[in-house]
């Protein structure tokens, strides 16, 4: 582009539309978080399910302590990645903050879990639905949209299931809500 050229209205319009096209689709995809959290939550839930069903361990829920290093890794990775994005879109920011907000909400539920009789699994599974679904919409990525729907369905089933089975349902929900779309997203980033 040069600055000396005298623009006709049509040329002005072309400049605007071509630049908007350049900025569109610039949204950063990130499969990393889906894979990190997918594996963390699937493993934690499966462990708890096995410990409840086949052992007499009194506090199997301590396995959920795995979420603490995952949260630290997410924050460190997020800060590093944030430095690499040269032109964040409005959607990048909205997406980042919706997941940060979601993270805070989850930790509040986990912290006060006792107050609701540790029945946090159905609540968290249901809560995973909206941000997953919305990220799918923002990235125009169907597997994540479907992942969001899986969370809603599994959230309903979870509320209806006995407590011990909720852990198995949660692993199933996260496998199809985070892991499968996460790996598919990773393929598109390559």
């Amino acid at each position: 582009m040069n600055d000396e050229k005298n623009l006709t209205p049509q040329e002005s319009l072309e400049v605007i539309t071509s630049m908007i096209r350049q900025a569109k689709g610039n949204m950063k995809k990130s499969s990393f978080y889906f894979l990190l959290w997918g594996w963390t939550i699937v493993l934690a839930n499966l462990c708890v399910f096995i410990l409840i069903k086949f052992t007499t361990i009194t506090n199997p829920f301590l396995v959920f302590g795995l979420t603490i290093p995952a949260a630290i890794i997410s924050v460190v990775y997020g800060i590093r990645q944030g430095k690499q994005i040269t032109a964040p879109t409005m959607l990048d920011n909205i997406n980042r903050w919706q997941w940060t907000g979601f993270g805070f909400t989850c930790f509040i539920f986990a912290f006060f879990g006792q107050r609701i009789g540790w029945q946090i699994n159905p609540v968290i599974i249901t809560m995973c639905a909206a941000p997953t679904f919305l990220t799918g919409i923002m990235l125009r990525f169907k597997p994540l949209i479907l992942g969001g729907i899986v969370f809603w369905v599994m959230g309903i089933l979870s509320f209806l299931a006995p407590v011990s089975w909720q852990f198995l349902l949660a692993s199933f929900a996260v496998t199809f809500g985070y892991l499968v779309p996460g790996y598919m997203l990773k393929k598109t980033e390559a």
Binding site: N2, K5, L7, S12, V15, I20, A23, T86, P88, M90
Partner: peptide, 23 residues
């Protein structure tokens, strides 16, 4: 705004939160 480059820069920044010089 009625210059190709300045209009281009403004159009890009309209759609982005921010952008660095290299971008």
């Amino acid at each position: 705004l009625h210059s190709q480059l300045r209009l281009g820069v403004m159009s890009l920044l309209m759609s982005l939160e921010s952008a660095d010089f290299t971008f």
